[in-house]
């Protein structure tokens, strides 16, 4: 395992050379990620690795792609999507226009899941889905809406467990080991790079989803991001986090009311 001091040096160098601040990422996970890429790429001395990162912007980009975790799936945690479908969308549906922000959307699987829910609820035409991530590479994948076919069986199970009643294959065309999701699902999606560490609010939303992103941030950065969401959320709007994430260490919970047992909070003042 790399040393703490080596990780600190890397964090400082990346900030100095590229302006990207990993200083507030959760250290245990970040250290594992850096250690992994260091060994995968065959380095034995940390200063060689540092020098490569400093002098080779392409390698730096690759390293960032590798150390930021981009694991996601469609309809991840079906019971969460069931609550979205049954409780949240009917409330949002009363609005003339629905603005949704997927913060840290990675390769977009959850954005397409949301589009499917909205389409089934007859709300997609009056919705807009902003999907942002810090990583430009994953956004390119998300825009295409093409996901590996080997995952589709799990996604179809998740879809059904979330209350979906259609044949899941209605939503994509399978070809050469990939599933391309129907283009009408992507019509209301806007993809853009956004860094939760340093960028500010850019709109007001009725629903913000940021699932399994905050776990990579330390408590101070979590506070910043939750307050950024608070600034970006309309009154009576909803904030949805990952199943093991909470707002309670970050913001006064009297401003929010939790929906059932799910990690969904409604802004009440």
């Amino acid at each position: 395992m790399i040393e703490d001091i080596e990780l600190e040096t890397l964090i400082n160098d990346v900030y100095e050379y590229y302006g990207f601040d990993f200083g507030s990422y959760s250290k245990a996970s970040l250290k594992r990620r850096v250690n992994r890429i260091f060994h995968l790429d065959g380095f034995t001395h940390f200063h060689d690795f540092l020098s490569k990162v400093r002098t080779d912007p392409e390698y730096y980009k690759k390293m960032v792609d590798e150390i930021t975790v981009n694991v996601t799936e469609m309809f991840r945690d079906p019971s969460f999507y069931m609550v979205l479908r049954k409780e949240i969308l009917p409330l949002l549906g009363t609005k003339p226009f629905i603005r949704i922000w997927h913060a840290g959307c990675s390769t977009g699987e959850e954005v397409y899941s949301m589009a499917i829910l909205l389409k089934e609820a007859g709300l997609l035409h009056k919705s807009i889905l902003y999907a942002t991530d810090v990583n430009a590479t994953v956004l390119e994948t998300a825009k295409k809406g093409i996901f590996p076919l080997r995952m589709i069986k799990d996604y179809a199970d998740n879809y059904r467990d979330s209350g979906g009643q259609q044949d899941f294959s209605n939503f994509y065309i399978a070809n050469y080991g990939f599933a391309k999701f129907n283009e009408d699902l992507a019509e209301k999606m806007v993809f853009s790079q956004h860094n939760l560490v340093s960028d500010n609010s850019f709109n007001e939303f009725d629903l913000i989803l940021c699932r399994n992103v905050l776990i990579y941030f330390d408590n101070k950065l979590q506070q910043r991001v939750i307050n950024l969401f608070d600034d970006s959320l309309a009154i009576l709007g909803f904030l949805a986090l990952g199943t093991k994430e909470t707002i309670k260490y970050s913001i006064s919970t009297s401003k929010y009311k939790q929906i059932e047992k799910e990690k969904i909070w409604r802004k009440i003042k």
């Binding site: 959760s26 245990a28 996970s29 594992r32 975790v69 694991v71 776990i215 990579y216 330390d218 093991k244």
Partner: peptide
């Protein structure tokens, strides 16, 4: 999730491979 330990004596989580 992977379960990790932080120096501040908290638990943290990670969804990596």
């Amino acid at each position: 999730y992977h379960l990790l330990f932080e120096k501040e004596e908290t638990l943290s989580l990670d969804t990596s491979e």
